[in-house]
């Protein structure tokens, strides 16, 4: 029925359909260029030597990609880039595991058990979901100083256990996909509740957990504000801090611009690679986790 109607309309306005399609594709092409031009500039500039970069702009890549890579990788004058990548990776990996495991566990607790205060807990978590971390940063930095954990990764990793946005996402997912009969059945079979969660329910939640792990990893990898307040030893720097240092150095001395472009490229390349493999999956997760904003 609907199909017939659509065909009827199409016949009536073939030209207008052609024009709107044409305009749409032109707009999409424009947006694609807009989204990609900065990455293109980044990549070609990372292939040019400092002298070539000073000489003028060119649209095609040059042959110094590996020279820049070696320079950026081995430079220890202000920090050691591979160390920063490793540091960022350690923090992001721990964060994403803790966030997804414990926030899912909380959502599971609220969905499955009818304990007193359950509604209050749910409402409270939703209410605090929008509070930015920056708002409590001062108190948090003071606390970290008092317990002597400055320049360690604990204050970046431990808070990941309580991620309200992940809780919200998992709560919705569990409500819609996890049949409580499974929990009942596991009880009849004599499974302990914690075991039921870990070995019977977690596998069912895998798709949602994976999405949340990716988002948590990326958020932590890109995080600048809190690490910048807590880490001031160069062995502990994460990538965003290193970028801020590269930026401040440009004010005082010119340096090798090819190396600067290469550092930027290396900072974003792991996330881009993961994204290109999993983009469908990630984009699908955006809507469900939309409260993240």
């Amino acid at each position: 029925m609907g199909k017939e109607r659509m065909d009827f309309i199409d016949k009536g306005s073939k030209t207008s359909l052609f024009i709107s399609r044409l305009l749409s594709y032109i707009f999409l092409a424009f947006v694609t260029v807009l989204s990609l031009f900065s990455f293109y500039l980044l990549i070609i500039n990372a292939t040019r030597s400092n002298a070539q970069l000073q000489a003028g702009f060119e649209i095609l890549p040059k042959e110094h990609f590996f020279d820049n890579l070696v320079t950026a990788w081995n430079d220890t004058s202000i920090f050691f880039l591979p160390q920063g990548m490793l540091n960022s990776f350690i923090v992001a990996a721990c964060t994403c595991i803790l966030t997804s495991y414990f926030s899912a566990m909380t959502a599971y607790g609220v969905c499955v058990y009818d304990f007193r205060g359950r509604n209050f807990v749910h409402k409270a978590i939703i209410l605090v979901m929008m509070i930015p971390t920056q708002v409590s940063a001062l108190g948090f930095v003071q606390l970290v100083n008092q317990v002597g954990l400055t320049n360690t990764y604990w204050p970046l990793i431990i808070p990941a256990i309580a991620a309200p946005a992940t809780y919200f996402y998992m709560k919705q997912y569990i409500d819609s996909t996890l049949p409580l009969e499974i929990v009942e059945a596991a009880r009849v079979d004599g499974s302990n509740e914690f075991r039921t969660y870990n070995f019977i329910c977690m596998p069912i939640l895998k798709p949602a957990l994976a999405v949340q792990m990716i988002f948590a990893f990326v958020a932590s990898w890109n995080n600048f504000f809190t690490p910048a307040l807590l880490l001031d030893k160069k062995e502990m720097y994460t990538l965003p801090i290193m970028l801020s240092i590269v930026r401040s150095r440009i004010n005082s001395q010119a340096g090798d611009m090819g190396e600067v472009y290469m550092i930027i490229l290396l900072a974003i390349v792991p996330v881009v690679i993961v994204y290109l493999f999993l983009s469908k999956f990630i984009i699908g997760g955006v809507t469900l986790g939309s409260v993240k904003g």
């Binding site: 414990f102 607790g109 359950r118 971390t133 409590s136 204050p155 256990i161 309580a162």
Partner: peptide
């Protein structure tokens, strides 16, 4: 068991976000 499942989240939230706030 509900309390057991929400405990890590609630404790960490209170310690790392609510008290600092």
């Amino acid at each position: 068991w509900g309390y057991f499942f929400i405990a890590p989240f609630v404790i960490v939230y209170v310690l790392c976000s609510l008290i600092p706030l």
